[in-house]
Design a binder for these strands. Structure first.
Length: 560
RNA sequence: UGGGGGAUCGUCUAGUGGUAGGACUACGGACUCUGACUCCGUUAACGGGGGUUCGAAUCCCUCUCCCCCAGCCA
């Protein structure tokens, strides 16, 4: 029974650490900075950090890395909590902030000074940059590097007491200005910021830097495995240096994995923010955004997102994953659970000349072809119907199985009809079709069992509901917009299209948060922001696979 | 050209000295009252060159390419 299922390299390390007895329990943390919304890349990190502790009965902290007041806010804290919960994870009582540890961090900093491992520098930011050297040249020591321990302690205490202005001094680690690893060239530990912190108010006017705060927050929470992305790989020596000098009771281990990049999407907070600021999208939760709030509003199920990052895997290799993988996960999830409905996105009128003027028949329609237990609903059928414009072609190629002049097609859950006449307006556009139906072919009860190749969907005109349906496409035209010099040059101008659709009556009782399949079209849900009963608004979550579109595309390519 | 990482089908990922496997895509077919779903099949990869070995994706040498780092951001 027990397949030797392959573990990713991090789970392997964790497994080994448990097996060897190095750890009795695994403790991880998801440490977002509350300065923006979470995106698909964070989903990866959340699922990994909470995943490994779910699997091993460990614990995971949700820790807000709030060390840079002014850039961070409680608005984001609330949104992030909501996102993590929605994704299906529970931090229980382990909601923390780096700022919870400011007191202990300050003591650790003092200890570093006492150890001769930190000093107060009074160089300007610009001078500090000049002293740092470059990638190929070593830096040089600050003239303040050899201040006495007593002077450093005094200065640092006065920094804390608010005696100095922003930028006047900074606490730095005393490591090696000649190190080939720039992170070790006396990195800054504390800077002065006379600003109110969203969590600690005015208690502090000095704030710790990421490397220092993060390492020791991990230690304070007895994190066993501190999982982060590849760009922090060359911070690890610094991470370990802090632990070596300060010897906290718990020694966490940092392990890095590669980020998840989604093709045709960006995940830089700065760039996502400019999409919002410049009005290219409506907000962070625009359904085209790769943010968790955006994908949720779009209708992507949390389970599909979890499945997606599992398929992407955990490695150290740079990855750019095709959209199709995500879309496939969404389809797979929704295919099982979404009930089927009928809606016409681009309506074309059909009049059944052979059908009685005032008759209405109720057709039984299956709610899910693979799950009969979901039952059926009644679909009103009448003389005048809407069908999809795309389902009629005047000059149809051989392989076109839908309606064409003189041709026959089945109306799903209805009758087989034949197109007898095409009505056009003065401009020559097709505006209506006159068709006749075969009364012996009613679905289920038909006395004729003859078959036609095509089946199309429809909605009865007099019973149709109206709705705006928003059709989304990728935001960018380039697979890797991150590498474009200016992402504006690779924006997809047609990422949003709104159509006035016709709906079957049962759709009126759909509730926000529930996805349905519009047969032959895709999966849809009500828009959580803009929908109202008076003016329904749907989002297209994802299309169905469409092999006809592929055939058409190939035909077009042959022509050109 | 300092330091740190990484190279397996188009994409993602297994494989740690013994038949290179899976998923997504693509292509072909079966089925179908959703051109969906499902099912079947096909194409398709170890970055290059040396070496060790009966045998190398895996070990050694070497080359090449890609990513990250010079915030008082995280």
């Amino acid at each position: 029974m027990s397949e030797p299922e392959s573990r990713d390299f991090i789970r392997q390390i964790i497994h080994d650490d448990l097996e060897s007895g190095k750890h009795k329990e695994i403790v991880t943390r998801f440490p977002p900075e509350p300065n923006g919304y979470l995106h698909i890349g964070h989903v990866m990190s959340i699922c990994l950090n909470f995943g490994v502790t779910d699997e091993t009965d460990g614990r995971t902290f949700l820790r807000f890395d709030d060390t840079n007041p002014g850039k961070e806010s409680e608005e984001y804290v609330a949104a992030i909590k909501n996102d993590v919960r929605w994704l299906g994870f529970d931090w229980q009582d382990r909601l923390t902030h780096a700022s919870d540890y400011f007191g202990r961090l300050y003591e650790y900093a003092c200890k570093l000074i006492e150890l001769g491992c930190a000093y107060v520098d009074s160089l300007s930011a610009e001078d500090m940059r000049n002293y740092r050297g470059t990638l190929t040249e070593p830096g040089k020591d600050s003239p303040y590097r050899d201040r006495s321990m007593e002077e450093n302690l005094d200065l640092f205490q006065r920094m804390r007491a608010g005696e100095f202005a922003d930028g006047e001094h900074v606490l730095r680690a005393r490591i090696d200005m000649g190190s080939p690893n720039i992170n070790l060239r006396d990195p800054a530990l504390y800077r002065i910021r006379h600003i109110t912190h969203q969590h600690t108010g005015d208690e502090w006017c000095i704030y710790p830097m990421y490397d220092f705060a993060h390492t020791l927050s991990d230690a304070c929470e007895s994190i066993t495995h501190s999982l982060c992305t590849l760009e922090f790989e060359d911070h690890r020596p610094l991470y370990n240096w802090f632990l070596d000098q300060l010897k906290p009771p718990h020694r966490p281990r940092q392990i890095e994995f590669s980020r998840l990049n989604l093709a045709y999407a960006i995940t830089s907070k700065r760039k996502l923010n400019s999409l919002v600021e410049e009005g290219i999208v409506t907000d962070w939760n625009d359904p085209r955004m790769p943010t968790i709030v955006g994908m949720r509003r779009r209708g992507y199920p949390a389970a599909a997102l979890r499945d997606f990052v599992t398929r992407a895997g955990v490695t150290k290799k740079d990855k750019l994953i095709e959209m199709g993988v995500l879309e496939n996960c969404v389809r797979e999830n929704l295919g099982d659970i979404a009930e089927r409905r009928m809606a016409v996105l681009r309506p074309l009128k059909v009049v059944l000349t052979t059908y009685p003027q005032d008759e209405v028949e109720m057709m039984a329609a299956m709610n899910h072809p693979g799950r009969p237990e979901l039952g059926t609903r009644e679909l009103p059928f009448s003389r005048e119907l809407w069908i999809e414009r795309d389902d009629f072609m005047e000059d149809a190629p051989r392989k076109f199985f839908r309606l064409k002049p003189g041709g026959e097609v089945r109306l799903r859950f209805g009758y087989i009809i034949r197109c007898d006449e095409v009505i056009k307006n003065d401009a020559g556009d097709v505006v209506e079709l006159r068709c006749s139906h075969d009364p012996d072919t009613r679905s289920g009860t038909g006395t004729s069992d003859r078959k036609v190749k095509g089946t199309i969907h429809w909605v009865s005109c007099q019973h149709a509901g109206n709705a705006d349906v928003r059709l989304y496409d990728r935001l960018f035209t380039a697979a890797n917009p991150n590498s474009a010099a200016d992402f504006h040059t690779v924006l997809n101008a047609d990422s949003l299209q709104t159509v006035a659709a016709m709906l079957e009556p049962a759709l009126a009782s759909l509730v926000v948060g529930e996805a349905v399949q519009f047969e032959r079209l895709g999966y849809f849900c009500l828009d959580s922001e803009d929908h109202s009963a008076a003016a329904p608004v749907f989002n297209r979550i994802v299309t169905l696979r469409d092999s006809w579109a592929k055939i058409e595309k190939q035909a077009l390519q042959k022509q050109s």
